[in-house]
Write a protein that binds this DNA or RNA. Structure first.
Lengths: 286, 286
DNA sequence: GATTGGCTATAACGTGACATTATAGCTGAC
DNA sequence: GTCAGCTATAATGTCACGTTATAGCCAATC
């Protein structure tokens, strides 16, 4: 296996297009194609396959691309180390929007971005974990359900759920709500398929609630916005502040969700170490 | 930087000889020489220099060789992973003789050497740590004085010192000894320059003792052997059993030494994980 | 359903990088 | 001084890789 093939394949994996990846690598498209084919032959497995008009990586392809990115970054770091240069690469933090807005603000503000450039990848929680697995990001912060055994995890904070209802709503005087209280209500919810939506429908359906979708929105901010517009009751993590004109009521029975810091073992860098300690130090106490 | 140059250089670093390394690589000596020169030019620093008749690595050379070994091993592991093969490489444990004899026996016996071949590197403690740093070994167990901040350490066991004296000796009736009690004695000690010798001479000289070297021996077993032959009093770690005809008396004031498990972060392997947990689980309780 | 656009995949070909052999240069030992 | 053993450089041939050209494939559009 030639490591040039591996690095070329990692770029191809970023684009999933021979034409564009070849442009970025400053070689011709056929040259890149040959390199990828040779890597695939050396590995002994197909690394990608066609899917409709486009291409997708196989599991083996994802693994090889992650390895390629990792080795390339470590190689750069080692070279800069022996040359006595400062480590130049950016620290990459992947995170769901929620964690970014409500959990990571202080850590990001205190991080010395002059010394170590910081790159933020805002994405859905599961994608953030995948970004770490694919060596696209150094750290990820996300709400994780199942165990992640191939990566290192640290629990940051456990959050519950609150229902955000207009102050004028009949439920607004209550101190907390049970799932059954939402029977018949129109809700502002996350898109179908998302972990939050799954959790919510499981909770309400289990309680025999008949509820309807008022709005599907992605991210806590838009959901709160729509709740404020009285389009429906939003169920959000309890670190979200209630907008003006609404009250946030704890929703009993909702499973607590752990926000975790996820990291690929190996590849210690001072910038990553600092960011990790900032995130753990600031996010944990609460 | 071409990674082939890096891997070739790692082999050269093992031999410190172009001729022999080239033989192992199945290329000619000039070909290897050119590869190493190109790597050096790419890095921008000399990677070795002449020292008398032989060659020695520079600090940059050591670092690059370690990186090369590490990447090569990880590459093999990743390839075997995506091919669905079992990981074949041996688990390499570097250790001082003392730890090997008295601390690691049960862990090594319980380790399934059929599934994962185990390679043991017996060497002096500081060399064992260096072997991990140089990516020649996965784990090291050694008595460490100073902090090792570039590697991951786990304290296994703290040991004190005991003086091994013949049963007939005037001191044999005592329950413990102070450094001053050894005034005028001939001692069985580790070679000059070793950590144990440094510790001992500091302790005794600090107490104003006049002591002489009866025997210089390397390793606890030979030291105990000479003590049994009544050639002198040996001062050894308190996990060493007293040989027949001798008694071992705690030596007060001697600094306790920590045996630590040292590991390079990154590169998780199931075999290494298992060995680590065996070592920690068995060695720690005591 | 023929056509077109945009991509992937293969073929043919030229050049440059690398491995080889040969040999000069250096160093310590006898 | 001479020799042995190694490192380092020079000259040379070959093969791998990158290039251009083009065939093949798929989906969208009229």
């Amino acid at each position: 296996m030639d490591y040039d093939w591996l690095f070329a394949f990692a770029v191809f994996a970023d684009h999933l297009s021979f034409t564009r990846a070849a442009r970025q690598l400053h070689i011709s498209q056929p040259a890149l194609h040959v390199q990828v084919r040779k890597l695939s032959e050396a590995v002994g497995r197909p690394l990608y396959r066609r899917s409709g008009r486009g291409l997708v990586l196989t599991a083996e392809g994802s693994r090889m691309a992650a390895f390629g990115r990792e080795v390339e970054e470590r190689g750069r770091a080692v070279l800069e180390e022996v040359r006595g240069q400062a480590l130049s690469g950016p620290v990459v933090l992947a995170s769901g929007q929620g964690a970014l807005l409500y959990l990571l603000g202080p850590a990001i503000r205190r991080f010395p971005r002059r010394t170590w450039p910081l790159r933020l990848l805002a994405m859905a929680g599961p994608d953030a974990v995948q970004a770490v697995r694919d060596a696209r990001a150094h750290l990820a912060v996300a709400a994780i359900d199942g165990p992640v055994d191939d990566l290192a995890c640290a629990r940051l904070r456990s959050v519950g759920q609150r229902a955000v209802v207009p102050s004028s709503h009949r439920l607004a005087r209550r101190r907390s709500l049970r799932p059954a209280d939402l029977d018949g209500e129109a809700l502002v919810v996350a898109p179908a398929g998302s972990p939050h939506r799954r959790m919510l429908s499981q909770l309400l359906d289990g309680a025999g609630c008949a509820w309807t979708v008022a709005v599907e929105a992605t991210g806590w901010e838009p959901m709160l916005h729509f709740a404020r517009l009285r389009l429906g009751i939003a169920v959000v993590n309890d670190f979200c502040p209630a907008p003006r004109g609404t009250v946030a009521l704890p929703l009993e029975g909702a499973p607590r969700v752990d926000y975790q810091l996820v990291e690929r073992p190996g590849l210690r860098t001072r910038g990553v170490d600092l960011l990790r300690s900032l995130i753990v130090g600031i996010a944990r106490p609460t």
